[in-house]
């Protein structure tokens, strides 16, 4: 749920990176953080366990520039992918404007991808959102690994809605900004439609 401030002429939108444990959500945010100018970003906050697994969320505020005199700000969040953190995932989805689903391309994570996507659909529905309607982008991450399944197969399993999809290698940044730009675009396009 975006926040429009006519007085300070700002618009804030919330984007959530969702996906199974270890699929690379935090790595996406870290790459974005490392590659953006200091003046356009805030601090990257990571609430994680000692083994660097996301415990509650990662948070990165980004400014993208102005549209018609309004500063556009995006708040990027990741959820914890591990199955037992479901209560936290629900909380983070509150007020979301756009979702990136990060899939792990490895063969052995196929089931985890599908489960996580189902979980996203259920948790969104609980908040009154429909996964078939929210601004949504799919990223097939870990394309560099030898056990990665074909994009065609991933598409069939995870992208029934046929939304924009991107291949990625998050640690080196392949596909990371393309994914972000697309979801930001979809969010702004949705705003144009109004409430």
């Amino acid at each position: 749920m975006s926040f429009i401030n006519y007085s300070s002429r700002e618009i804030n939108c919330k984007i959530v990176y969702y996906g199974p444990g270890l699929c690379g959500k935090t790595t996406n945010l870290q790459y974005i953080y490392n590659k953006t100018n200091p003046e356009t970003k805030g601090k990257l906050i990571s609430l994680s366990t000692e083994t660097d697994r996301t415990l509650f969320f990662d948070f990165l505020p980004l400014s993208l520039g102005e549209i018609r005199g309004f500063k556009t700000r995006f708040h990027l969040y990741t959820v914890p992918g591990q199955v037992f953190y479901d209560a936290s995932r629900k909380l983070i989805l509150k007020g979301v404007d756009g979702v990136v689903f990060v899939a792990d391309s490895q063969m052995e994570r196929m089931e985890a991808n599908i489960e996580s996507l189902d979980n996203l659909r259920t948790n969104l529905a609980e908040q009154g959102y429909d996964l078939n309607k929210v601004p949504f982008v799919v990223q097939y991450n870990k394309r560099d690994l030898p056990n990665a399944v074909s994009v065609d197969e991933l598409h069939k399993a995870l992208n029934h809605r046929n939304v924009p999809e991107f291949q990625a290698v998050a640690p080196t940044g392949v596909g990371v900004f393309d994914t972000l730009k697309m979801v930001a675009k979809l969010v702004l396009t949705e705003l144009r439609k109004g409430q």
Binding site: L64, A184, L188, L191, R192, G194
Partner: peptide, 17 residues
């Protein structure tokens, strides 16, 4: 009280990126 963004164009959005 419509959205102030009702008038934005695809170009406006593209220019941002």
């Amino acid at each position: 009280m419509g959205s102030p963004f009702a008038e934005i164009s695809d170009d406006d959005i593209d220019n941002l990126f």
